[in-house]
Design a protein around this nucleic acid. Sequence first.
RNA 1: GCCGGGAUGGCGGAACUGGUAGACGCACGGGACUCAAAAUCCCGCGCCAGCAAUGGUGUGGGGGUUCGAUUCCCCCUCCCGGCACCA
Length: 738
Amino acid sequence: FLRMLEKGLVYKKTGTVNWDPVDQTVLANEQVIDGRGWRTGALVEKREIPMYYMAITQYADELLAALDTLPGWPERVKTMQANWIGKSTGVRLAFPYRLTDKVNSSHLPSQGEGRDGGGVSTTGLLWAFTTRPDTIMGVTFCAVAAEHPLAAYAAKKNPALAAFIDECKRGSVIEADLATMEKKGLATGFFVEHPLSGEKIEVWVGNYVLWGYGDGAVMGVPAHDERDFAFAKKYHLDIKPVIDVDNKTYSTDAWQAWYAEHGRCVNSGNYDGLDYRAAVNAIAADLAGKGLGEKQIMWRLRDWGISRQRYWGTPIPIVHCAKCGDVPVPDDQLPVVLPEDCVLDGSGNPLAKRADFVNCSCPKCGQPAKRETDTMDTFVDSSWYYTRFACADQTAAMVDERVNYWLPVDQYIGGIEHAILHLLYSRFWTKVMRDLGLVKLDEPFARLLTQGMVLNEIFFRKPDAGRVTYYNPAEIEIGLDANGKRTDTTLKADGQPVQSDGIGTMSKSKNNGVDPQSLIEEYGADTARLFMMFASAPEDTLLWNDAGVEGASRFLKRLWSYCEKFDGRRRDGGAKIAPELKKAALFEVHSVLKQANHDFERHQFNTVASAAMKMLNALDRVDGVDADMEECLGILLRILAPLTPHIAHQLWRDLGYGEDVLAAAWPAVDETALVQDEIELVLQVNGKLRGNMRVAKDADRAQIEQLAMQNVNVQKHIGGQPVKKVVVVPGRLVNVVV
RNA sequence: GCCGGGAUGGCGGAACUGGUAGACGCACGGGACUCAAAAUCCCGCGCCAGCAAUGGUGUGGGGGUUCGAUUCCCCCUCCCGGCACCA
């Protein structure tokens, strides 16, 4: 943190948070989304507070480009990250304005870096970013965020506007909430100039314009932007089409998807007839010539606000001194240690109430000072814990040389819910550690497996006042009627009803997790493992239900008793095995092995489990022991070892295959066992299954076709109609088209 | 709302490159064993009609491409994950 601070990769600025005005605390997202009475009656307000930020945007380019260097990552995760980083190219342009009365600088608060520094002057520029500069001649309004200085300026003599701005400053800052809320706006009565036409354009305040993205202002082109279209319809603003797509006819009655497509400029003066590319270039050049715009790359990714008003994060090592300002805690006074007897009462940051923690002296001047009480987002810790695993005993440094030997992590496994935040922060942090000379890696995780979510039903009660209580599904009694339909849900403990909140991810906060310990105690670890692996492939979401666990248990018991029987037959000298039975068993075991190998590679362990079951079924059909059967059982135990290591290890040993099943070579598919003299072909008429037939494995096309046409069922369904075509798929089917 | 993923019997799921939909299990029904039960073993099991042979129908809904679509294309519905302070 301190090295990043020195390099400008950590900086301080104000950030917007959800604020609980009753308890005077920062609300967690969950408390806002849930809205289920964590703080009853609380309104959510937006509030600006000072925060420390990590400059992840400085790495946006590399984080995006390096996704191509990660072949071991699932495509869907890479797509999500690319969208999240959100590189878009467009034009940043300015609408000049002139203030109609004399103002001083306090009317136009500082707007931060890169923004319109309107300041004391009576002329200014309203900056906005667009990805569709080709539609610039269709601008009929501009909209600014409620926090924008021009909004504040216009509100000075407009109480209605001031009230609206106030209203906008209430409500959640969560992106999902902003996107779904009703789009509202209010005209300011203030006008700016169109940068190319000079036309007067009215400025509106819109609750959907984000102060945190770009310049906090957008140009409104209702004709070609769906959101602007809806806004213009609602407030009866002009809709001016300026793009023609394949001579389609534009109508302002209702939005059509093609309105947003690229096309040729029309109704755009000098730019008429230009296609998208040409128009963007021409318009960008004209704007640049006037000093009112330029091409720009915009990123969706924002810098990472790491300050949290929580107890349980890493303390931010800063001391606030009245004289010296924010002073970093010197290295020899690190680490800042949290008090271990804090009372977590849910109201605000408990650290702030601890005078013994807060009061300190300034490391610079020695005068009394206040310690920073915000802690770091715990994502900070999860961004680099794995580097410590490579050098856990290192106490003198953050990491040492061994990291470069062990990392990157060969196979990382985590829930798909981490696809963006954790996995992006970790990538960022790795690159920062590299640039600080701490590691020699570009990426932390070579291969990634993202588990699907395990879901379970959520049950809760909400008392009239106070917090929601969540109950574990194990504590719930579900009443069913004669048709198996649910009638009621009650808590076993008191027989009183509870409500269902549907299905959701297992989580501590929703108390809908399942403890595998009870399964392990009842059935053993192997059964618990086999059951869970058999339930679905690891990347799929799964609704938890332990109804099938008996099947896994039964299989392992069957395996055990088969092995005892097998060993007994060995001692008895083994009966003669019918050759066709043995051939069938070998064919089954080896073709299943082939499938299982493929499934292992693609991490589809549920079908590996079913492969083991199929093998046991095949072996059980043969009553006798010989070298081939010995080999087949060995194959079964070997492929089972990764799924149920304990029983596989024990049986492997007991049957004398060797010491350690996991050390044994992986079995090879015997291709000769897969050769069949005859193969079965499916017979279809007009694509419908009408029977099947056996043919020699080397039968040629003509023979197959002839045999198929002779088939009774085929003839019956042809019914004397002329045959148009016969499709023969070798090894699979014959389809007669009539 | 945006981004990502998904939907197949009563249930979990299978079907690798478009080629027998429902593998393997669970549940259920029938039978064997047992005084009885449990455990175990055998048989059946998408839906509709039929004693059966068999026929029709069927992979969330609608359309398309194809000799043939769970698989490819277009549109829609619903569900799950993420949306930056749950971590």
